[in-house]
Simulated scan of single mutants.
Amino acid sequence: MVMPLLYQCQGQTSETSELYTYKKGDPNGIGKWYMGREIAHVMGFQGMGWLERPEREKEENTATLLQHMNISSYDTIADVGAGSGYHVFKMAALADKGLIYAVDIQEEMLAAIQQKMNETELQNIKTVKGTEKSVALPENSVDKILMVDVYHEFNFPVEMIASMKKALRADGKIYLVEYRGEDAEVPIKKLHKMTESQAVKEMEAAGMKLERNFTKLPWQHCMVFIKE
Rank of each mutant, 00 (worst) to 15 (best):
L94D: 12
I188K: 14
K23D: 08
M147Q: 14
L65V: 09
M117L: 04
E15H: 11
F214Q: 13
H152E: 14
A78L: 14
P4Y: 10
E182A: 06
A63I: 11
E178F: 06
F225H: 01
K190D: 06
F154W: 15
T127F: 03
E185A: 07
I188F: 09
P54G: 09
E185F: 01
I100V: 13
T21D: 11
T120D: 04
M43H: 02
Q220Y: 09
K173R: 15
R180E: 10
D143C: 05
K97Q: 15
D26C: 11
G85K: 12
E107W: 03
L94E: 14
K144E: 12
Q198R: 08
I174Q: 03
E38H: 11
N155D: 07
A95T: 01
E121K: 13
H87Q: 12
K189D: 14
E202V: 00
M223P: 05
G29N: 10
M117Y: 05
C9Q: 14
A162N: 11
A93E: 15
E182S: 10
L65H: 12
L137F: 08
I71P: 05
V142Q: 00
L5K: 15
A199I: 00
M109F: 07
M91K: 06
Y34T: 04
V2A: 05
A92R: 10
D75V: 04
G181F: 02
M3S: 13
E159L: 06
H221V: 08
H192L: 00
G98N: 05
E196K: 13
G47E: 12
I188A: 07
D171Q: 10
A136D: 04
T21N: 13
K227Y: 07
L210I: 10
M1D: 09
V158K: 13
K166E: 07
G11V: 00
E108D: 13
Y175C: 01
Y86I: 05
A40M: 04
N213W: 08
G130E: 08
G207L: 07
L5V: 02
D79V: 09
K126N: 09
R180Q: 14
